[in-house]
Simulated scan of single mutants.
Amino acid sequence: MNQISLGQSDLKVTPICLGTMTFGEQVSEPASHAILDRALARGVNFIDTAEMYAVPTRVETYGATETIIGNWFAANPGVRRRVVLASKVAGPSRATPWVREGAGMTAADIIASCEGSLRRLRTDVIDLYQIHWPERHVPAFGQMYYSPSKETSSTPIPEQLEALGRLVREGKVRYIGLSNETPYGVHEFVRLAEQLGLPRVASVQNPYSLLNRSWENAMDESCHRLGVSLLAYSPLGYGLLSGKYDEGGTTGAQAPAAARLTMFESMRKQRWGRKESWEVGKLYNQLARDNGLTPTQMALAFCYTKWQVASTILGVTTVEQLDEDIDVWGTQLTPQVLQAIDAIRKLHRDPAQ
């Protein structure tokens, strides 16, 4: 894998990123360290985490993932210099009052969150610090439509940028990014950064998979023209595109017992648990099999080869899963398969949007 630049920054990352939200919930600390070791050995230099992880969020596991990664750095001197480390500041409370109360996300909130992450990660600097979800009310996490009546924004974007700029000036953060954003949000952050001489966003971390290609409905042009990179999360649609739920669903007798959608009812209530997501996922999975591919190979190759994607974030629970996902790198989908993928989307759109 050749390294690529994120946006207009000088961060050089691999086009595969290790996501860590399962560390501390589904994955123990020793198993997490084994996955981190393996990712580094396989050439992956990009690690993504967040202050609110592990997922699903619980007060008992708040900050656990960053702590596990920090312990890995401490146990392996020199490793920190070999990786590009990304983390995220949580937006206003989304059923996570132990992270932040109230509707806003003030400059003080951002500063305090970053300093907490630095302590847990046992590092002096976070290479890419991202706003996990907008302070504004936006269509995200399964909400499809923007509604002005639901707007509760109380922290202006300039205040958020000023806080991030302070962290950059103090050397605690190198570059900034966004997540779960909209075209308006990206344009406004870039416009204000350029106008006010504040840090410019390097990347946006949004969902992108066969089950959710909403990025291609305006975000791709916006970010291409602004020079902002996409970090694609949930490329396997929470496992729906791996084929493991095809026969047993998420709750039946044949459902995979150790899988996220089987274990956690809260996740089944989200976009990935929709009946439509499961049904359309099965269509894509059968298309893969009909063309001599595993569902995982087709779903990841789709993300790995799209011009819109700078780096694909892999969420795994075992070293074996990590190897399987990395091994897909280099797989090319034929024009016929890509046409068939588009045909399915034309009929079913984005069920996990």
Rank of each mutant, 00 (worst) to 15 (best):
R94A: 12
E324T: 10
G227C: 06
L198R: 07
L118M: 05
E29P: 02
A202I: 11
A299C: 07
T317E: 13
L85R: 13
T294P: 12
R271F: 09
T331H: 07
V328F: 00
G104W: 04
R271Q: 14
T106Y: 02
K275T: 14
F73N: 09
E60V: 12
Q26I: 00
I341H: 03
S117L: 01
L287V: 02
R94V: 11
T262G: 11
Y175I: 07
H137A: 15
M144K: 15
A218F: 11
V27P: 00
L322P: 01
K172T: 09
V204T: 15
P56K: 01
L231A: 13
P199I: 05
H348I: 12
A90G: 11
A352P: 07
R200Y: 02
W272M: 09
T251A: 05
A86I: 01
G91T: 02
V83K: 03
A86S: 14
P207T: 08
P139K: 05
V99H: 05
Q205S: 12
P148Y: 13
F23W: 04
V59P: 00
K88R: 14
V309R: 11
G43T: 12
L40M: 12
A108N: 13
G116A: 08
R58F: 09
R271V: 11
M21P: 07
Y145W: 11
C303V: 01
H132M: 04
C17G: 03
V89T: 09
